[in-house]
Amino acid sequence: MADDTFTWVCARFAEVLEIDPAEITMQSRFADDLDADSIDLIEVVNKAEAERGITIEEEHLYDIETVGELVALLDERTASSAG
């Protein structure tokens, strides 16, 4: 599932940040590598919530630094809402 989620996250950030999805890796840091801010992150998280019918508590977003951490968080929420 992580692969799918990663591809989905890359596509969304590519839209929001107007960059090439190929530039994004699991290790990309939002602030330092992608120049993404909390508004960008919230935009993508809102889309994930709508598409997957999940809820991400704000608290879980505060410590996120990398694309990989967001992918893991989305997968975890998706698994727990399905189960």
Binding site: S38, I39, L41, E58, Y62, I64, L70
Partner: peptide, 9 residues
């Protein structure tokens, strides 16, 4: 230090 997802740094 606050993470990138922290709203309004």
């Amino acid at each position: 230090r606050l993470g990138a997802g922290f709203p309004n740094q």
